[in-house]
Amino acid sequence: MKKLLVALITLSTALAANAQSLKGQLKNHAGQTISLTGFQYYNTNILANSTLDSLGFFSLS
C-alpha cells in the first residue's frame, strides 16, 4: 500500500511537471538555442532546452 502511494505521488508529480510547457516565436532569435531554468532555493536546474527554427518558433516542455 505504501509503495502504491509513493508510486502515485511520483506519477502525479511527473504529470504535473510535464503539463507545464512553453511554446512561441521570437523572430530575432531564429536559429539560436534556448533554455528554461528553474530554481530550488540556491540551486538552478535546466528544465528544458531546444533550438529555435529559421522563423524563430520554439517549444519547451
Binding site: 510547457s21 512553453l22 532569435h29 534556448i34 531554468t37 530554481f39 529555435l52
Partner: peptide
C-alpha cells in the same frame, strides 16, 4: 523560471499556467 537564448538574452517567466505561449 529564466528563459535564456544563445546570445545571453534573458526573461523571467512564471510557469504557473499549463501551456504558456
Amino acid at each position: 523560471t529564466i528563459l535564456k537564448t544563445q546570445d545571453n538574452s534573458t526573461a523571467i517567466l512564471v510557469l504557473g499556467e499549463e501551456k504558456l505561449s
